[in-house]
Design a binder for these strands. Structure first.
Lengths: 222, 222
DNA sequence: GACCGGATCAAACGCGCATTTCAAACTGGC
DNA sequence: GCCAGTTTGAAATGCGCGTTTGATCCGGTC
């Protein structure tokens, strides 16, 4: 029930003055857009949750699409800032691969705020917006290259680009699956709960992929 | 509530009439729902494409959601009928795995009608409806079990269920990825076109997975 | 021919929601 | 205390779209 507040209630409901309305809209927008998707989300609901007036969206962001873009960018920057990827490369490639897979899965499946960007992203898979292009350019490309580098090391320096690419995508695919196809997994194995088995999953995907990559290398050597 | 009679003798008798409006709505609905998604699709557009009046949707299916359910079910049955899975199991498991992966990829990525159900399904990943439950129960479970059987053969009869499940999902994940994450792949590798390289993809995924599975078996043997 | 009931049609209705409006409240600077 | 700017507010506007309505057509039956 999202009935607008009456005048008296509104004055009573005065928030701390400097809890910036703009920021509160971004936070509420992130939650609602992630939960409902762009079309289903209403700015009424978002501004209600933010304790702001409907007109505030237009005032700060122009329109609903502008709010969405700002929410996406803000979530992206926030994720980058407070939870940067460990792109440094030291240690054996096997170990780095495992670390990367574990971190990736956590970002995808974690129950709290970290996975909200992934949820937003999953919706972009089916209804891409310009925000997706930016995210790929700014954030995903480097991660992807990082995995590709590890895998090239594992395959040997003389592996052709094609093979590197296919193996990289196979690794990424196994991780992404547990988020983007979660409804299927949940229905096939109702008593299973992937977020609760992050480390087991990471171990499996790493072992599975390492074995496959080593075999490709061995075969090429013949 | 005015509904057309069920397919009793009465309906069959008077079919020279333009009784295929219902079917045309199903066809148009399939195309539009797959392309736009449930919310964005409009019944105006659907009935226009079907050459039918707007009221026909209400007349035949009650409402928009009813049309969607009917479209989904019809597409599902049609896919089952005219393009059944080869679930029979003869030949070496390696060969059956490859055949299954190739068939699966074709269903996911083919450019024509076969992949439309997969497109609809991809949307269900992000907004599940009751149609998804039915599809999993009726169609996906058996396919999944088929893959699991092959993989259990490859792993050896004494492999534990956990391992079988993880390996099965790893195989499925690699296939599904090229559809459900197509926007990402397209942006990471703009000059790549997965549907055009179906056999190469199938070969890679099979080889990759077979190597991984064999390694799991070997390790368990120690 | 008169009648019935299914099928189609154009038009209207009503609702949800994004967007706009314009006045009121607040802010800091003078 | 007054003013120009910014921010917030309740209510209005407009529109897209799902759904309904009531008329009309048409084949089959008596």
């Amino acid at each position: 029930m999202n009935r607008p507040l009456r005048t008296t209630a509104a004055t009573v409901r005065r928030q701390p003055r400097n809890a910036d309305t703009r920021q509160r809209l971004l936070d509420a927008g992130l939650a609602v857009f992630a939960a409902e998707g762009f079309r289903k989300a209403t700015i009424q609901e978002i501004s209600r949750r933010a304790g702001a007036n409907i007109a505030a969206v237009s005032y700060y962001f122009g329109d609903k699409a502008g709010l969405y873009a700002a929410v996406f960018e803000s979530a992206e920057r926030q994720a980058n800032d407070e939870d940067p990827w460990p792109l440094a490369g030291d240690g054996p490639p096997e170990q780095r691969l495992h670390a990367h897979i574990a971190g990736f899965l956590a970002r995808l499946l974690d129950r709290d705020r970290r996975a909200v960007l992934a949820q937003l992203l999953a919706r972009e898979m089916v209804e891409p917006t310009p925000a997706l292009d930016r995210l790929v350019r700014r954030r995903m490309r480097s991660n992807h290259d990082h995995v590709a580098t590890i895998i090239r090391e594992l395959l040997g320096a003389d592996a052709d680009a094609e093979t590197v690419r296919l193996c990289t995508l196979s690794v990424v695919a196994q991780c992404v699956f547990y988020r983007n196809s979660a409804p299927i997994v949940a229905r096939l194995y109702p008593d299973l709960d992937p977020p609760a088995h992050l480390t087991q999953l990471a171990d499996h995907i790493t072992a599975f992929s390492l074995a496959a990559i080593r075999a490709q290398r061995a075969e090429r050597a013949t």
